[in-house]
């Protein structure tokens, strides 16, 4: 299988890339790792007229902490995230389970975020940790909270002429922990169900901030807001997490498909929420 014909524009700078995208209009697409886009082009379900390759733009390949945030550049590959000392909690937990080792060497975290595949892992992690997507357009840079960025399945609120140049993920100041539990049928598979958990504890050991988000069980990656609200201010406990798990299971809207029944997927949400929150709490308590 082979892609249909397209023009390739190799951008040297962010502004070149943004300009090329503005010029290309609807037929233009950015190419970073290409690990989702190129297979779609080979299957001929995607056929951009112009591809704007951003891989040669310098200065976008760092993953580092500054000013209380973890900054992830647009060319940071999944493998770089997995190997990074700067990453934390649910990010560390999720990185090894994205795709497979070779795809992780090439695919980028930002590209995956921008792809907005509801079966993709990263947007749940970003929802749980409260991250911003940093977009650059002709008018400059703007942060977009991840909840506003994800607009629907495979659609974001990014303007036509905007490029995702990075992610900004708040680094918890105090004790924190996270988990990403993913049920996949095999390595390289999308999640059948996955749950991202993020907990921050205050000095008393009570939950100061909670993040919980789910992959593959809703039309988009979904933050379980009521479960998060329930947990804040409470001491971590199995009972609390079981209650949060019920809220997560109720918020999930899975469908019957070849991966399994909706009832079972909801059960996995329940189980993985309990287990994920327990793991996050344990990590936070030990941090």
């Amino acid at each position: 299988m082979f892609p249909s014909r397209f023009d390739l524009i190799v951008a040297e700078t962010i502004s070149d890339a943004v300009q090329a995208k503005a010029d290309a209009g609807e037929g233009g697409r950015f190419l970073a790792g290409g690990q989702s886009l190129i297979p779609m082009m080979k299957m001929r379900v995607a056929f951009p007229e112009k591809l704007i390759d951003i891989n040669r733009i310098s200065g976008m390949d760092a993953i580092e902490r500054s000013n209380g945030h973890l900054h992830v550049g647009a060319l940071v590959r999944h493998a770089d995230v997995a190997a990074s000392d700067a990453a934390f909690g649910a990010i560390v937990a999720a990185a090894p389970w994205v795709a497979d080792p070779l795809v992780r060497n090439r695919g980028t975290m930002c590209g995956s975020v921008a792809h907005c595949d509801p079966e993709g892992d990263w947007n749940s992690v970003l929802l749980a940790t409260g991250a911003d997507v940093v977009a650059r357009g002709p008018g400059g840079e703007r942060p977009i909270p991840i909840g506003e960025f994800v607009d629907g399945a495979f659609t974001s609120s990014l303007a036509e002429d905007e490029l995702v140049v990075g992610l900004r993920i708040p680094v918890p100041a105090g004790r924190s922990g996270g988990a990403y539990l993913k049920l996949e049928r095999k390595i390289g598979d999308y999640a059948t169900v996955a749950v991202a958990s993020h907990l921050e504890l205050d000095d008393s050991g009570a939950i100061a901030a909670a993040g919980l988000a789910m992959t593959s069980v809703n039309p988009i990656n979904t933050k379980v807001v009521d479960a998060e609200a329930l947990m804040v201010g409470q001491q971590p406990s199995a009972e609390l997490f079981a209650e949060a798990a019920e809220l997560a299971a109720a918020a999930a809207e899975p469908r019957d498909d070849v991966r399994g029944t909706a009832a079972w997927k909801r059960q996995v949400v329940r189980t993985y929420t309990k287990r994920g929150l327990a793991a996050a709490a344990q990590q936070a308590e030990g941090s």
Binding site: D100, R185, K186, I187, G188, D189, Y190, V258
Partner: peptide, 28 residues
């Protein structure tokens, strides 16, 4: 454990590529 080809009610083949037709890796 995982490797099968199935069809929907319209006769569409589910399992026509290695994302749906599951060949185990060394990990599984």
């Amino acid at each position: 454990a995982m490797q099968w080809i199935t069809f929907d009610d319209d006769g569409n083949c589910i399992g026509a590529n290695f994302m749906d037709y599951l060949v185990p890796t060394a990990w599984e």
